[in-house]
């Protein structure tokens, strides 16, 4: 009985045999039908994505080259003026630096803490682990605006629990840091709030990854007398490599689109725009300055930057993955 695999790429015509009563029938069909069916199935989703994501994005890119002003008439093509205005703006480099700083602290800090948490959750018993997993997921259920506000209270100089705690453990009042007032401390504060937000989700992913590592590897390392650190580096990490890749990309994207948390925490961008990221800058330029062209230019740059960065990260991390395994 000849039975073709359904996934042979080159076969155009697939013939299978069927037992039908006492006859043996050849049922032949063309694989191209499957391709059409497949495309049809995916079509509604594709249409939605194209219409509501790709089209607005392309429109944005297009309008970035005009003097688009919603309250006026036909936009004129003005070339790169919007981008030049954006680059000439006194805040441009500061905002870019802030964004990069946020990406670094958030991605690295977030990954490290999530991995640590994942390790710890994997170690303790199932009941306790489940309790922890459920509890630390709660921040994900809140709106970003709320998260920003909560952490504005937490980091508040006079009223905030963090400074109260520091005072309680003996830090003299003069040395209490102004978390949201000192330029150097703002991005770390925002990162802390963001890490608080996502640690519940990513730690679960890492925990799941660790649960799937076969015991045999650990047995081998135990036999060879490896220390727990070596075990971690040589057994756990390589298996987590794919997760680390994906999560790094996801974290990068999240930090780039984070705008509600910095906005609520710093009341609009922080002292002297030290708390403003590209996303927040695009938002304030649009809504407060009413400079639509410039705001769109900023958002286009942001979008391209996100895609390029994700690409680079994928390339680097995928290579490391392959190298490791």
């Amino acid at each position: 009985m000849r039975k073709d695999s359904v996934r042979v790429p080159s076969a155009r015509r697939v013939c299978l045999e069927r037992q039908d009563m006492k006859k043996t029938r050849h049922v032949c069909y063309y694989k191209s039908i499957w391709k059409w069916n497949g495309a049809l199935m995916a079509l509604p989703g594709i249409v939605l994505i194209v219409v509501f994501i790709i089209v607005p994005f392309l429109m944005n890119v297009g309008y970035a080259f005009t003097d688009y002003n919603t309250a006026s008439d036909v936009p004129r093509f003005i070339g790169l003026t919007n981008f030049r205005n954006m680059a000439k703006d006194r805040d441009f480099w500061l905002v870019c630096t802030n964004t990069l700083k946020l990406i670094l602290t958030y991605v690295i800090g977030g990954n490290v803490i999530a991995i640590l948490l994942g390790v710890m959750i994997t170690n303790v018993g199932r009941k306790f682990g489940n309790f922890v997993k459920t509890s630390i997921y709660f921040p994900q259920l809140l709106s970003m605006v709320v998260v920003g506000f909560l952490w504005r209270i937490m980091f508040s100089y006079n009223n905030g629990p963090i400074n109260h705690f520091l005072e309680w453990i003996g830090v003299p009042p003069d040395l209490l840091p102004q978390w949201l007032g000192v330029p150097a401390l703002i991005i770390p504060s925002i990162s802390t709030a963001l890490i608080w937000l996502i640690s519940g989700y990513y730690s679960i992913i890492y925990h799941a990854g660790m649960m799937n590592i076969p015991m045999s590897y650990y047995e081998v390392s135990a036999i060879e007398g490896a220390s727990k650190w070596q075990e971690f580096v040589h057994v756990t990490l390589p298996f987590l490599a794919p997760s680390i890749t994906i999560n790094t990309v996801l974290l990068t994207v999240e930090s780039l689109s984070a705008f509600a948390v910095p906005a609520s925490m710093t009341g609009g961008g922080g002292p002297g725009r030290y708390g403003t990221t590209l996303a927040l800058w695009s938002y304030t330029t649009y809504f407060n300055n009413h400079q639509y062209g410039k705001a769109i230019a900023i958002s286009v740059v942001l979008g391209l930057f996100a895609v390029v960065l994700a690409f680079i990260e994928l390339k680097i991390l995928l290579k490391k993955e392959v190298g490791n395994s």
Partner: peptide, 20 residues
């Protein structure tokens, strides 16, 4: 006032209303 760099409007007004 101490901590003025990070005081927002609410904090500023609160300090005056309670006498800080």
């Amino acid at each position: 006032q101490r901590g003025y760099e990070s005081a927002d409007l609410y904090e500023c007004m609160r300090e005056v209303s309670v006498g800080e």
